[in-house]
Simulated scan of single mutants.
Amino acid sequence: MGGEIDVFSQPNVGTEFTVKLKYAVTHVAPSQDSTPPQVSKKITPVNTEKLRVLLAEDNKVNALVMGKFFKSEGHEFTHVTDGAEALKALKYQSFDLVVMDNHMPNMSGIEAIQKIRNQLSLNVCVFAFTADVFKEAHDAFIEAGADFVLTKPLQINSLRDAIAQYSSKISGKLLIDASEDKDGNVVYLVKAPIDSLSMTEEELSKSSLLVSESFTKAEVDELLNTFVDEAEQKVDELIDAYTNASSRELYIALHSVKGILFEFGLHEAAILAQEAESIARNKQVPELVLLQSLINRLLVNSHQAQRILSKEDHQDMTG
């Protein structure tokens, strides 16, 4: 066909193939009665804020390249050199995006990702970053819990495209297409970064359920872990139901949220859930501000539960 194939390969980094093919371009004149193509409405990520990025990479050159990119885009950048250090950072800091190499000392990227999902129970967006070009290696990352796999050598455009593709999860916000109010403003519910929320709305540390003498420490830890899982799940359900403008879905989610909050003695948050539930029961969608306030309180109390658990783990480790 008269084309060209170029190969670039670097030991311990990866291989890149470039294929160039020649083909003829045929122009077809449109018929007079043809209908103009329909252009789908562009979905624009609502997040333009600075991201907090954690990179786990033991190769200094790759880390420098990655760090330069993120800093040039205006994001905060933290670098660790293995999976164990990444887990430690994630226990005590909040990140919007984790970029994880695989072959590192002390703990591999795949093992670290599994622990992020299963032990830390974090839903943070994770990009794997590897020189492995085989499908099996990429599948192993995805099965461990990675959201996307970047290949080495780093292609800046691929990284930028991946961030745009997963912007809703990275920012904790939804990509909204047609959800506009009467003035044409985009409206959405947000899973805001924890450091942007008011911790004065936290009630969990004063919960009578957690200080009850009828529960052992192990049972209290189980209650806290259950609350974190339930809170994260219910926040997602509320966002999905609001996006679908489904009063029935909202009622089901709100009824469950109300029960959880009352059970843990989180009365201020429970009253918000009860108010929203009453509105949804009448087949109406509660106001955005009311639902957002409830979601914020769920996130704050979930974060407090994780802080209590992390503090206990740290105390156990230090004796």
Rank of each mutant, 00 (worst) to 15 (best):
E312P: 08
F127E: 08
F141P: 03
A178Y: 08
Y188V: 08
R117C: 01
A86C: 06
I308V: 13
G67Y: 07
V186P: 03
V126Q: 04
G184Q: 08
R297P: 02
S212K: 07
S158Q: 15
N102H: 01
F227T: 05
G319W: 10
D313E: 13
D229Q: 15
M317D: 10
F227H: 09
V13S: 10
P153Q: 13
V235Y: 05
E180A: 14
T216W: 10
L238F: 08
P45Y: 05
M1N: 10
L272N: 15
E268G: 07
L55S: 09
I279D: 02
Q119A: 05
F215S: 10
N225H: 09
L154R: 12
G145M: 00
F148H: 13
K50L: 05
G319H: 12
V53P: 06
A140R: 13
L175V: 03
L309T: 01
V98E: 01
G67H: 12
Q233E: 10
N123W: 01
A178V: 02
T48G: 00
M317H: 08
Y188H: 14
R117Q: 00
I194M: 12
L120H: 03
L175C: 11
A241M: 11
Q274N: 11
F70T: 07
V13K: 15
V46W: 00
L175T: 05
D181I: 12
N12I: 00
D221C: 12
I194V: 15
M1S: 14
V190G: 01
V186C: 01
L298T: 04
K60W: 07
L90Y: 04
Y251W: 03
D240H: 09
A178C: 04
G172H: 04
I156E: 13
L291S: 10
D195A: 11
V211T: 14
F77V: 06
Y23R: 15
I116V: 10
A131T: 07
L87E: 05
L299D: 04
M317P: 01
G319A: 09
V99D: 06
F8C: 14
Q93V: 00
R52Y: 00
E203P: 08
S293A: 12
V13M: 14
D181S: 12
E275Q: 15
Q38I: 13
L97W: 02
T226A: 08
K173D: 02
T200Y: 05
I239Q: 13
S40I: 14
A305C: 03
H79E: 10
F227S: 06
L54A: 02
K311N: 05
D132V: 13
E73Y: 01
P30V: 02
G2A: 15
Q274H: 11
A89S: 02
I43S: 05
T130P: 09
D147F: 03
L272W: 10
M100D: 06
E136S: 04
K152V: 12
V65Y: 06
A276E: 05
A192W: 08
M66P: 07
S9F: 03
H27K: 11
A178N: 14
S158T: 14
D236N: 13
F8Q: 15
S31K: 09
N12A: 04
A56G: 06
E57I: 11
T18D: 14
A276H: 09
L197Q: 06
T200S: 12
V220T: 14
E222S: 11
I5N: 09
H314P: 01
S310Q: 09
I5D: 07
A89D: 00
D82S: 04
F134S: 11
G67D: 07
H75R: 07
H138F: 00
D147W: 07
